[in-house]
Amino acid sequence: MTAEKALVFSRAGHVSHSTGRDGGSSRLVARGLFKRFGSQEVIAGFDHDLEPGVVTGLVGPNGAGKTTIFNLLSGGLKPDSGTVTFADQDVTGRPMHVVSRMGLGRSFQDVRVFPALDCLDNCALYAQTVRETSLVRTLLMPRSTARLSGVSRQVATEAVEFVGLGSKKDNLAGSLSYADQKLLAIARLLAIGATTLLLDEPASGLDRRGVEKLMEVIRRLRDEGRTILLIEHNLDVVREMCQKVLFLDRGRVLAEGTPDDVFARTELAELYFGA
């Protein structure tokens, strides 16, 4: 995919940050995040500058707080203290629908494609602007709404093709295989124009061929200069995809570095595998 095509994903109307290799303007920064559920401290001081254009892995045993960090970063969940800034704006605890429009997209562990919509519509929904989602405009300005809708379908088509689902774009998402649903979930993030993607266990539940396809997509996203934070239990995927790994346990980052460095530390392996 060429650079100019990549730009289609962040059309006017979505806050269009550079899809870009400079990436500096859409930097995601977490400072001193704390979150407690009842008496349980789930996140105990999370600080991180997500390096632009880099694939970072977030690993750790179950219950380490990985998904909670995603929820704190992507909006919706307010931290007890600390701040999240994205693209130089404070987005701490701002609603997810606002944050995602700024270009910070997230996927879900349990995929959550819309089964009753076809692939194209799944992406077009993420691509549609606030204006075309207005009921008043839909009724009073039908022509302009239809025109805008055409543009978002165009963006959606590109996104669907990017992940290799072009031939299935008219299929209902509910009828897709699990592997294809996972790809569709990533395509949706492209459709909304995400420059930073938070992917929650994209490889879980996939067979080898599914994992290969997924890694190919992630590689191309990385080559485009998008920033990716990846929660993943499949350490082969982490080793191949990530230039950097954060090891999380009980809400704290215990180690940070290249995959080889982090995985070489025996005490972490013990924590992870419960040996």
């Binding site: 997810m96 879900f108 959550r112 993420y126 075309e132």
Partner: peptide
Amino acid sequence: WVRRMPYGRALVAMADDEAALAAGGVK
């Protein structure tokens, strides 16, 4: 018309999953 347009698409999505809808930028 409303159902065919983006608003209607969002309605169908809302019936299925509001969190995924929010992740798509729609309240």
